[in-house]
Design a protein around this nucleic acid. Structure first.
Length: 193
DNA sequence: CTGGGGATTGCCT
DNA sequence: GGCAATCCCCAGC
């Protein structure tokens, strides 16, 4: 049984900050997660599961510990860790990470750019890891490892989610204070100012 | 560093 | 038919 089994039964807003510092391995690359967002199932107007099960969000309603991968803006893939018991549809969007293994592979996939930008942004992170539609529903047992030492609470910051015009009152984006791999796109383009 | 605009396709209304 | 949990490039300061 994976070490995260119990944690991932909790709803996404509880799980998300505790995934910071966790390591995710796929396609010969390992990232240390530095930025995540919670989407809280059918109660959350910004969640893909808000209107109930569809062909796209099917994996979200399944058991926790799987990857929910969706296609965005006609050209990008983004990945979530499904949490909450089967039948609920909570998920944590992986927004950024630091490449800690497989640097050469990640550079090949992403092209020449500063190392801290290789997995900065949800679609860049999946590209660095070689994740696309083929990994929708992937079981993360053996691929996801929680941090050995919990990240100190004072190193975790939170704020409104990125690119979401709804529910700006909930601070469900979490990131590691001062980490250079954290996405620069911190404001919603449609957010009222 | 900041802001604007285009690319491109699957999903839901 | 409209829009989307985005990224990259370019112009301007």
């Amino acid at each position: 049984m994976p070490g995260w089994a119990e944690l991932l039964l909790r709803p996404a807003p509880e799980v998300a900050p505790r995934l910071l510092g966790a390591r995710l391995t796929h396609g010969g690359v390992t990232v240390r997660l530095t930025e995540v967002e919670a989407y809280d199932g059918t109660n959350d107007a910004a969640s893909h599961a808000y209107r109930g099960p569809t062909a796209r969000n099917d994996v979200m309603f399944g058991p926790p510990g799987r990857l929910y991968v969706y296609f965005s803006y006609g050209m990008h893939w983004c990945a979530n860790v499904v949490c909450g018991p089967a039948g609920t549809a909570s998920a944590v969007l992986l927004r950024a990470g630091e490449v800690v293994d497989g640097l050469l592979t990640a550079r090949q996939r992403r092209g020449a750019r500063p190392d801290e930008a290789l997995a900065r942004g949800p679609a860049n992170l999946t590209q660095a890891l070689g994740i696309d539609r083929n990994q929708d529903g992937l079981d993360l047992d053996g691929l996801l490892a929680l941090p050995e030492e919990p990240v100190p609470a004072e190193d975790i910051l939170s704020g409104p989610r990125v690119g979401v015009s709804l529910a700006h009152d909930v601070p469900w984006r979490f990131w590691l204070r001062g980490d250079r791999s954290v996405s620069a796109y911190r404001r919603s383009p449609r957010a009222p100012r």
